[in-house]
Amino acid sequence: MLYTEMVTAAAILHGPKHRLLDYSAAEHPLALQIGGSDPRELAMATRIARDWGYAEINLNVGCPSDRVQSGCFGAVLMERPGLVADCVAAMGAESDVPVTVKCRIGVDDQDPEIVLPDFLEKVSAAGVNHFIIHARKAWLKGLSPKENREIPPLNYDLVLRMKAAFPQLTICINGGITGLDQAQRLLEQGLDGVMVGRAAYHDPASVLVGADALWGEAGGLDAFGAVEAMRPYMLDHIAQGGKLHQITRHMLGLFTGRPGARGWRRVLSERANKPGAGLEVLDAALAELQTAATAA
Results as ranks from 00 to 15, higher is better:
P259C: 01
R40G: 04
A213K: 12
M251V: 05
V227C: 03
C103F: 05
L235M: 12
L187K: 03
N155Y: 03
D108S: 12
D283G: 08
A11V: 14
A295L: 08
E41D: 14
K146Y: 07
P81C: 08
H202Y: 15
S65L: 11
G242W: 09
M195V: 13
V281P: 11
N174A: 12
A165C: 09
V97Q: 03
L116H: 04
K243W: 13
A85R: 12
L2H: 11
L13T: 04
V207P: 00
V61L: 01
A200V: 15
L214H: 10
K146P: 00
G216N: 06
A272D: 06
T291G: 00
R231Y: 02
L158K: 08
M162N: 06
A211Y: 01
Q69C: 06
K17R: 15
G36I: 00
H250F: 12
G82S: 03
Q69M: 02
A229H: 13
Y3D: 12
G276L: 03
H130R: 15
M91H: 02
K141E: 08
H134F: 14
G260N: 03
H18D: 14
R136G: 02
H202R: 14
D51P: 07
G278Q: 09
V61P: 04
K137H: 10
L140D: 08
A183V: 04
T100W: 09
R50G: 15
D96A: 15
H18M: 09
S37L: 05
P29L: 02
N60S: 08
S24W: 01
D66R: 10
S65I: 04
